[in-house]
Amino acid sequence: MPVQPWLLLGAALFALGVYGVLTRRNAIGVLVAIELMANAVNLNLAVFSRLHGNLHGQAFALFGLALTVAEVAVGLSIVILLHRSHRSVRVGAASELKG
């Protein structure tokens, strides 16, 4: 089976993630969308591993998994901090950076 459909699948999944990041008002919703994007990237790594006939891609996909887990941990702690300080997890709640 050719790899193009797989890669298109990964791109579609990434695009879904982009849509979620841009439209979610809730910070946890944004994190969910980001997970989708990271997942799409990992999928692409696995596909290219298959394409090139070696395991380097899979190894990097493993690293990517670990990175994603770290990102979720930090992201969720930020969300909790945001909730604590602003009584809200809306993405628009924190606007202290306004110039």
């Binding site: 791109a11 579609a12 990434f14 695009a15 879904l16 982009v18 849509y19 979620g20 990041v21 841009l22 439209t23």
Partner: peptide
Amino acid sequence: GAFFAAALF
């Protein structure tokens, strides 16, 4: 969001 998603895809 839809525009950016579609554009990237």
